[in-house]
């Protein structure tokens, strides 16, 4: 009998520490499926974030590098510039990519570094227990915005795709959402384009993935998935920005 569904070779056969309903495990798997399908596992070097996915290297079966919080794209620049024939991607959350690492994000994009970025936007700091992220929605309650995010004090949710869209060196930008099975399929398609862009030397590609965090949002897994589709997408419209 033909086996038609199996664990990707790029994904280690171990349990992850992710909470029930979290988006990280799904995106990890999508990335691993793509790396297998493209046949690039042996030339892949991932740069892992600081945040919930800090130990992604324990789950991925290819070379991985740590980076300080926010510096993944600088580390990736050092790897890719010295090894242009390797496949290098960063995996970063919203605090990492859009707060402490905003400068590294904008400048790697502006230089047109030939890199692929998986940007997980869950509108909160998960690892540290639910603080306001740069992408937290207005009125969203977090441990550091107990009354809800107030734009007069905390500003507005930062829209990374819209910000980067004006930079001429950026090759592709797409925002997708883990809100349904269809959303998962679209996420894989968007990541595939970002990966192929790099393999064809087309430059900087970023996929922003709206992703559920049921524990820090204080929702059920099902409720969190619904909130991504019904609330997050109002602030962060889906689609191709470049």
């Amino acid at each position: 009998m033909e086996k038609i569904f199996t664990r990707p070779e790029s994904l280690r056969d171990v349990d992850t520490h992710y909470c029930a309903g979290c988006g990280h495990g799904i995106v990890h798997r999508l990335i691993c499926e793509l790396i297998d399908e493209l046949g690039i596992r042996e030339k892949t070097i991932a740069v892992c974030p600081v945040g919930c996915a800090v130990v992604a290297y324990d789950y991925w079966n290819f070379d991985c590098c740590e980076a300080a919080h926010g510096r993944a794209l600088a580390v990736a620049t050092g790897i890719k510039r010295t090894q242009p024939n390797r496949f290098v991607f960063t995996y970063q959350g919203d605090g990492d990519l859009a707060a402490i690492g905003t400068a590294e994000t904008i400048h790697a994009a502006n230089r047109g570094e030939n890199l692929s970025v998986a940007f997980i936007n869950n509108a909160i700091y998960g690892m540290t227990g639910g603080q306001m992220a740069p992408t937290s929605l207005l009125k969203q309650k977090t441990t550091t915005t107990p009354l809800g995010r107030n734009p007069a004090l905390e500003g507005y949710p930062l829209k990374i795709c819209e910000l980067l869209a004006v930079l001429p060196a950026v090759r592709s930008l797409e925002r997708v959402a883990l809100d349904s099975v269809g959303g998962v399929i679209k996420t894989k398609k968007a990541l595939k384009e970002a990966f192929i862009n790099q393999l064809e030397n087309k430059g900087f590609s970023l996929v922003e993935i709206l992703s559920p965090c049921p524990v820090c949002w204080k929702k059920t897994p099902q409720g969190a998935w619904q909130w991504v589709g019904s609330e997050m997408t109002k602030t962060f419209p889906l689609g191709k920005f470049k």
Partner: peptide
């Protein structure tokens, strides 16, 4: 060889980390 003018010293040393890890 590779020369990069970084956006900050934070970025420069992290780029060095990437190249050293390579």
């Amino acid at each position: 060889r590779v020369f990069v003018q970084a956006e900050s010293e934070l970025a420069a040393i992290s780029m060095v980390m990437g190249a050293a890890a390579s």
